[in-house]
Amino acid sequence: MRNFILSETLGAYKSAKGMAWISIAVSFVLILIFGVSLYLSSTVYNIFQIEKKNIEIDVYIKGDIPEPFKNRLYEIIKQFAGVEDIDFISKEDALKVFSQRYPQYSDILGVFSEVPFPESYVIQLTPYWKRPDLIRHLVTEISVLPGVDEVYAGSDWIAKLSRISMLFIGISLILLVGLFLAISYVIYQTIRLIINARKELIEILDLVGATKSTIEIPYLINGTIYGFLGGLFAAIVLKLVIMGSKSLFFFKLPEYGVIYPLLVVIGLVVGLVASYLSFEEILP
């Protein structure tokens, strides 16, 4: 039986070799395009997640306000919903941070008689409030408080990032649907061609008492392998590009290991579904 299935599978492949490789090539190209889009989505989404976690609000204080006033401001800000923690950054702290981050500029600071940085409060947000719309709301409320010079949240950038990552994810999903249809169609047609070329054989198998699954399995294996190979080649190419990114684009792209098996599985599933549909349609 195993021999029989094996030789029929091979025979089926041989009866439409050209179409088989067209199926594999089409699967490869489409799955690769999907893989790239999925990769970009993951990258942007990842950056979005990291930035979202780091998001904080900087409240710069006017230089000329008295100490009790500052404490009052501190208490008021602390009462706002979404504020988890507040740190006071003195001029000296700001200077320290600056020189640590940009040591090459520390000399320039020597020309000032006084530390040129304003005092500020750095607000940490509760996880729920780390949303662009809520942050924008908070920023408006804080910026009108007396003694506040300027409020900076960087949330516009986060909002943009969020929109871009949603867009990428949306495109990937559309591609996934399109790819499913396109690959299904090509593999479906290939299997149809093969089955039609082997109608005589199938008729005889039916006559001598082969069960439906015995007759069907070689065609399912063929379709599944076409999709599988398309997915495998796409995964390999994507992996090579990312591995070689350092020499190709002068920076190292991050890896998302889960993408590769996902591409292979998608190819395999489309191939199986398409060949099953093909068989059911021609020989119900």
Binding site: M1, N3, G11, L205, G209
Partner: peptide
């Protein structure tokens, strides 16, 4: 006759057994 033209006489006969799981 309905023979399979892509295989020899012997294989045309064994196919009736092989599809039912008889060892080759």
């Amino acid at each position: 006759f309905k023979l399979l033209h892509d295989r020899n006489v012997l294989k045309n006969v064994t196919i009736a057994l092989e599809v039912t799981g008889v060892p080759s």
